[in-house]
Design a protein around this nucleic acid. Structure first.
Length: 573
RNA sequence: CGGGGCGUGGCGAAGCCUGGUAUCGCACCCGCUUUGGGAGCGGGAGGUCGCCGGUUCGAAUCCGGCCGCCCCGACCA
């Protein structure tokens, strides 16, 4: 799909009477997310199947405006646009080990060769670079494309927020070493910050999990909104995905020390809450024991404060590998009855979360039925290794400031891959001394569809969407009241032409519909400014301009109205 | 993958329990009226009730199987 060049979008005739903008009065019955409801109602998107969406003309204009912003910022950091196929041979995916990914669509061609539908393009781009880059003189490089991604998602949801097919801008950086990668990464940070600013989104750049791909660092760009699938932990100067966030815990009042642990009878009390109220202490004065089995079949006992939860992501990072929770029979065999386990006497390495105070007495399971221990001191009563594995909670502090937790949707991510792909695919170069070296890579994604949906999530009211100026389907919607041939229509026609000539993208509602319907449709679609030409104002020598966000209206003299509207538009958010 | 729900003209719903000629609102078409907040009156078109099978004189309705879609969780390279 060739992009619209600046200008061509704007010269096109866009009269609503002959445009395909099917609005709906009611949202689809199965829609939950605001962006899902509004984008369907406003005639921007339509569903084809689970996680499969068509972009209708007005919706595609939004998409393409975002694409153009992204393209400009990528070009500004010296990246080169290209295009790679979605349908690919399976072979390079086998080489990188990604053929096993369940989300990867797999198929066979007519000669029964294994093929895949790409979910990203590391394999192919790295193959090209491996084949053509020979020397350190060829580096660094940043290459990118806008291409469809296919992912067999277990659960598509919320309109275009999580789909099985979507366009992504993916770029890939190639450098000779780690420092070079850091520089390419920094360029992307700069470009991405600008992209999201220009799209008019509220966003955060947060520290992210590097996931199963390993890697040397990653950030996610998160747009806060109710329909978001992620949570971000925020404090002044701090932003992280909740999955990996770290913070100082809130204090908990602990009982005075004991010389040695004492048994407490706790019949049938297998939960933190029941034990806490039985001993008359806050949940944070208890230790929660979480037994896990490592990939090598070894067992570890992870302990966090009773009022905290283990973050499986952080635990995975701390363990440096895969793990699973121990099954009840494994707990029974190696520790004690589930519900009454604890670190004292446990014959396995113990990982103690750093929120647990070292020199104080905690209540823990006794590894015997119906018994807990009080006054248990880490170090004195059991050996441990310090880890940071808990999920932070709102009210914890970073640098003394309390964090808040907000739902957000991931709209972009940037990732230091290192040599994860260059190694299996043989992407190397010769350095100055003629030695073969692996290329250091980064990969960077941006989802225009998600950015569009996030904008709808962030900017809407009971009447519909209120687009940021930069990505609205049209800059101005002209609503002419009255019928064909009336003075209102005549002036509407004129304003439409003049606004277009000034370079604005204008949608002109020239339908033979009532005023209520026109206003309702205009506010649903959400162009940043609406120009109304009606008899009332016409008689006074004025037209009316409504700013969509906030819905404030003002009148403008007909004389010089076009310039006034264009000036006003420049100042919109 | 676990749990829950839904499938009836373009959209939203009722009817299903208790089997008997498919209903309502909006949208659509024609005519007249109406034009600053989703208009009024009159006339009209449009549905294999997701699919297949079974029970029955008769199935949107009861039974079985399948398909599709949504939500929560798990997952999300």
């Amino acid at each position: 799909m060739p992009p619209d060049q600046p200008g061509t979008l704007r010269r096109r005739m866009t009269r609503l009477s002959s445009y395909f903008l099917p609005t709906e009065r009611e949202p689809p019955a199965d829609a939950e997310a605001i962006s899902h409801k509004l984008m369907v109602r406003a005639g921007l998107i339509r569903q084809v199947g689970s996680g499969l969406w068509t972009w209708l003309p007005a919706g595609w204009r939004v998409h393409q405006r975002i694409v153009e912003i992204v393209r400009e910022e990528m070009n500004a950091i010296g990246a080169h646009e290209m295009l790679m196929p979605v349908l690919q041979p399976a072979e390079p995916w086998r080489r990188t080990g990604r053929y096993a990914i369940e989300e990867l669509f797999k198929l066979k061609d007519r000669r029964s060769a294994d093929m895949v539908l790409a979910m990203t393009h590391e394999e192919i781009i790295t193959g090209h670079v491996a084949a053509s880059v020979r020397s350190y003189r060829d580096l660094p490089l940043i290459l990118y494309h806008f291409q469809v991604k296919e992912r067999d998602e277990p659960r598509p949801r919320a309109g275009v927020l999580r789909t099985r097919e979507f366009v992504m801008k993916d770029s890939y950086s190639f450098d000779r070493d780690r420092e070079g990668l850091d520089r390419s990464y920094a360029k992307h940070v700069q470009a991405y910050d600008r992209m999201f600013d220009r799209c008019g989104l509220r966003w955060y750049r947060v520290e992210a999990d590097v996931g199963m791909m390993g890697g040397f660092g990653a950030h996610e760009y998160m747009a806060p909104c109710a329909a978001g699938e992620n949570e971000v932990a925020l404090a002044p100067g701090y932003a992280a995905n909740l999955e990996v966030a770290s913070a100082d815990p809130q204090p908990v009042s602990l009982p005075s020390r004991l010389d040695a642990p004492e048994e407490v009878h706790t019949p049938g009390m297998t939960t933190i809450d029941t034990v806490a109220s039985a001993v008359g202490l806050p949940a944070g004065a208890l230790l929660k024991a979480y037994p896990v089995i490592l990939d090598g079949d070894d067992m570890r006992l992870v302990c966090v404060r009773g009022d905290h939860k283990v973050s499986e992501i952080k635990l995975g990072l701390a363990l440096g590998g895969g793990f699973r929770p121990a099954r009840p029979e494994e707990v029974e065999a190696r520790l004690g009855p589930p519900g009454f386990i604890g670190p004292v006497g446990a014959e396995m390495p113990i990982l103690l979360d750093q929120a647990v105070d070292g020199g104080a007495g905690y209540v823990t399971g006794a590894n015997r039925p119906d018994l807990h221990l009080r006054g248990v001191e880490p170090g004195r009563d059991f050996p441990y290794e310090r880890v940071d594995v808990r999920t932070v909670v709102a009210g914890d502090t970073v640098g003394g400031a309390a964090i808040t937790i907000e739902a957000a949707i991931e709209v972009g991510n940037i990732f230091k891959l290192g040599t994860r792909f260059s190694e299996p695919l043989g992407a190397t170069y010769l350095d100055e001394s003629g030695r073969e070296q692996l290329i250091w890579m980064g990969s960077y994604g941006f989802g225009p569809a998600r950015a569009a949906a996030a904008a709808v999530e962030q900017y809407n009211d009971e009447h519909g969407i209120a687009w940021p100026r930069a990505i609205a389907p049209f800059d101005v919607e002209v609503v002419a009241l009255g019928r064909e041939g009336s003075d209102e229509r005549e002036l509407g026609d004129r304003l439409y032409r003049e606004l277009k000539d000034l370079g604005l993208a204008v949608l002109y509602d020239d339908r033979d519909a009532g005023p209520g319907e026109k206003f309702a449709d205009a506010e649903l679609l959400g162009c940043p400014a609406r120009v109304t030409v009606g008899r009332r104002a016409l008689a006074a020598g004025e037209i009316e301009v409504q700013i969509r966000r906030g819905r404030a209206t003002r009148t403008v003299p007909i004389e010089g109205a076009t310039e006034a509207v264009a000036e006003l538009w420049q100042e919109l958010p």
